Amino acid sequence: MDHKQLGYFLTLAETLHFARASEQCHVSAPTLSRQIKQLEQELGTELFVRDNRSVKLTAHGKAFVDYAQATLAKWRQFKSQCQDSDGPLTGELSMYCSVTATYSFTYDLFAVFRKQYPAIELNLNTGDPAFSIQHVHTGKEDVAVAVKPENLPQGLAYLPLGQSELAIIAPVMDCPLTDLINKHHQDSHLWEKLPFIMPEHGVLKERIDDFCVAQSLTPKVYAHVSGHEAMVALASLGFGVACVPQIVLDQSPFVNQVQHLDTNNLQGLEAIEIGLICKQKRLQDPVVSALWQCATALFA
């Protein structure tokens, strides 16, 4: 087996979906399936149970997750120890963040880092920020930009990068939802009448849940969506209202196609904090430490 196969395995073990895993690994689904099959043949056991509807880890597959994570972590540590102290710092570093974060934080950080350490290979993977902590915790990524949760898991280092207010948005186009808002904008029960586009998971979902509890509201959910950027798009089309970070809205191509709903007198929509995270022990890696120091100098 090679380290690339272990990476493929961990991605599929996390997503339990061949199409999503192949997309994240930047390979075709048949290639991913073939690599997993080769790995299973080498191990002499099945790692996944597959059928037409689902993919599940076997008992051996669950045990192999720990082995794969530990092996890749030791491999990265060994490569770091092989650094030539007289030469430029080399190696690889992977970061996970949302598309918005690539504009708001990652671009400036990578620009500084690239200038100081041009021999390091940077790998940037984008997706739903709700997965940021999970990707770092499982060892899939070295570092990630994440919304800070109320309780940060033990063993993770955290560096604040900035904050963002939360906004509840609705479309500006003429549609039944706009008519409903205009008709009941002074109604104290307006929120009960509105369809909501909700995030599937993550800190933002927790904040919206807090907002609903504070308003004694059971929201009418039109759809659950993965990714904040997609929530803005659906809100602009009139499918429902959405609560999104202002920083996401500022970078969205649909910013002029939505309006803010008044939440000044409402509780439960405190600003979110955004930061850089990695495993505490990974800061011993010279490559990860170099990025962390650049971020500290840039955002302190």
Rank of each mutant, 00 (worst) to 15 (best):
F48W: 12
V49M: 14
V49T: 14
D51G: 05
N52M: 10
N52Q: 14
R53D: 14
S54P: 09
V55S: 11
H60G: 03
K62R: 15
A63F: 09
A63V: 10
F64P: 12
V65C: 13
D66A: 11
D66L: 13
Y67D: 12
A68N: 05
T71M: 11
T71P: 00
R76I: 01
F78N: 08
F78M: 08
K79G: 09
C82T: 02
C82R: 08
D84Y: 00
D86H: 11
G87W: 00
G91K: 04
L93N: 03
L93C: 02
C97K: 00
C97F: 01
V99L: 12
A101L: 01
Y103W: 13
Y103L: 11
T106I: 15
L109M: 15
F110S: 14
A111F: 11
R114D: 12
R114A: 11
K115C: 12
Q116R: 12
Y117M: 07
Y117W: 09
P118Y: 12
A119F: 12
E121I: 14
L122K: 09
G127V: 12
P129D: 04
P129E: 07
A130D: 05
A130I: 06
F131V: 07
S132R: 03
H135L: 14
H135W: 10
V136M: 04
H137Q: 12
T138Y: 06
G139K: 04
G139E: 04
G139R: 10
V143E: 02
K148S: 05
P149K: 01
N151D: 09
N151M: 12
L152N: 06
P153Q: 02
